[in-house]
Design a protein around this nucleic acid. Structure first.
Lengths: 344, 344
DNA sequence: ATGTTTCAATCATAAATATTGATAAATTCA
DNA sequence: TGAATTTATCAATATTTATGATTGAAACAT
């Protein structure tokens, strides 16, 4: 191999490589980046060392011998001209430069590591694997079915587990690595959690079609106030939200029935047992036949549903494929469109 | 080199690599990914070929000979087990699989290509280079100064060019590659442009302190209607926005003075020549002394300011460093925080 | 302290791999 | 058809990468 970095060539190229033909075209911008050695392997070693704490363990993880890692690190430091690790004590220590490099390199290395599987997934579909998604009942019932259908169509070999959990349990599953990610609504986002809202739904007032209020076009909070509400259990966010809004407006209200499950609530409302405020997510076309529906977005905030992940967790190919169905641009990045305003 | 991929080792390892020590620990999850050959170089070749259209040109760009590229491509296709390119005619053609791979690989290859420079930038600061940002006057005057200060502090060697342009010209500069990116507000985003809003400002009504309306706490559109407005030129979005809102509400209004520059407008208002509706961006602390200010967000939409880029363009290290100042997570990705709601 | 264990660095050597020049074959263009 | 351009093939060679053996240091246990 000619040392092609820096010294394009000596002999008159037959395969006209680089050196030639740099006259009429663009201002010699190409070839700005030479690749010394194999930065790729070096950085994989580096990232692995940082993750695992010692060269020896990194070597194990990468199926290499320890001297290899040592040499790669040295080459990396030499070529970058900085010290990355303090090899003090029994555990390595990142220098500031090392910290910076790790931050830059980790996503690349990880992206690289999963590229093959990602690609096979795209081309042939995933051949095996399992995906666990944590989600609330309403999400599973109304938001996910279509996505699950498309996912199963594309990746029939993947075992799909939908864990029906409420907020707290969902977060616990994420933290315990028992779920790849969660889908749902979040009122407040903990520090270690990343939330990417995708779908937005307006709050809806539902009433029996023969209810006195159903005649009115615009229904205000005052109008609602006298009637008994059917709401989900207090621990769920919808209840808390409704309560909050009425409290803030100092409007009296009373809960006639407290019962779990949007279907049940809709059924009860249709039967004339009360009225309710639900998220737009659970209003289907069919419901308009048996229920009167009014948008309440001027009084209650929108509910946003989205993907919930543990920060820093690297998603499996299976998980990434699903997230990509939910929202194409989210993981590939390079798509800076304004989020929000998708549903509604 | 022992074929370390797949066949961990034959002899009893001294440097205890992979094979050993897989008993008590985790369930042999490590080492799921082997690296055949040098996928890295193969993919760089592939991406380059796709970009440049022929193997020969790709070889030039990478300072390699043409056979090298040919072989790398073949190895890639063989190892992935798919055909990526149709080598028909004089120009290569991507297969579907090739398309998919290109999409997955390009960000990685590009990230890789600039990693070294990015790193040097982080560690030593950028040693040279030039950065051209297109922005409107108000952006340059109110939004950018602090950012520019911080950028110059960190990267004093970079030549910073701020092109003071209005919307159309800014887009033209982006498309002509005369600007690295633009910063500003966008009402509608063309298809080839990516916009990432970062800062959001409420619309503000400004009046002279002794104006009759200044006594009122809540000021409505009706209140404003009789008074003469001072607005920026019609071609600017603020004018169009104000006009639109009054039109929609079928509210009469009249423009007393049309004049460019927020500073001038503020000055005129302070002098009692009229009232105006401006973006919150240009209201500083000092202005509260000479102007009465009212938030008009219930009538006029928020204005969002953000980073405008040409889709697909890969930013220079200089540009990335700046964007990173504007909004840390935007480019590094891996940070799925809800955008929006930052300013105000 | 002293012996043991764990870890990283060094080095010569072995092996894999990448790159190349030469050349052939195919395609496009005039 | 002939010139030009492009890709594929191949054997030879240059280069990189990985390894085993070994050493010296630090941490740990007693």
């Amino acid at each position: 191999m000619k040392k092609h970095a820096g010294t394009p060539s000596k002999s008159k190229k037959i395969h006209r490589s680089a050196a030639k033909k740099r006259a009429g075209g663009e201002p010699a911008d190409a070839g700005r980046f030479y690749y010394k050695g194999n930065r790729h392997k070096q950085l994989r070693a580096f990232v692995s060392v940082v993750k695992l704490g010692t060269l020896t363990r990194a070597a194990e993880a990468l199926f290499l011998s320890q001297p290899t890692i040592s040499l790669q690190l040295q080459a990396l430091e030499r070529e970058l001209g900085v010290t990355l690790l303090e090899r003090r004590r029994r555990r390595i220590n990142l220098t500031d430069a090392g910290e910076a490099l790790y931050e830059l390199a980790r996503p690349l290395v990880e992206g690289w590591d999963t590229l093959d599987r990602d690609f096979q997934a795209r081309v042939k579909g995933l051949q095996a694997g399992r995906l666990t998604i944590a989600a609330g009942t309403s999400t599973i019932q109304y938001l996910l079915p279509e996505l699950v259908r498309r996912y199963r169509e594309r990746f029939p070999a993947v075992q799909l587990q939908l864990a029906n959990v409420t907020g707290k349990d969902g977060l616990a599953m994420l933290r315990a690595d028992e779920a790849d990610f969660a889908v749902g609504s979040m009122l407040d986002v903990p520090n270690d959690i990343a939330w990417a809202p995708v779908q937005h739904y307006d709050p809806m007032l539902i009433l029996p079609p023969d209810h006195p209020l159903a005649a009115k076009e615009k229904i205000t909070l005052e109008d609602i106030s006298p009637y008994g509400l059917i709401l989900p259990p207090q621990r769920l966010s919808t209840y808390r939200l409704v309560d909050l809004v009425f409290q803030q407006r100092q409007m009296p209200y009373h809960v006639a029935i407290e019962v779990g499950g949007w279907d049940v609530i809709k059924e009860y409302v249709a039967m004339g047992l009360g009225i309710s405020i639900v998220t737009g997510i659970c209003i289907t076309e069919a419901d308009h036949a048996r229920l009167a529906v009014r948008n309440m977005k001027q009084y209650f905030p929108q509910r946003s549903y989205g993907v919930v992940m543990r920060k820093g967790k690297f998603l499996s190919a299976e998980a990434r494929a699903f997230v990509d169905l939910i929202r194409p641009g989210l993981l590939t990045h390079r798509d800076y469109d304004e989020p929000g305003h998708s549903g509604r």
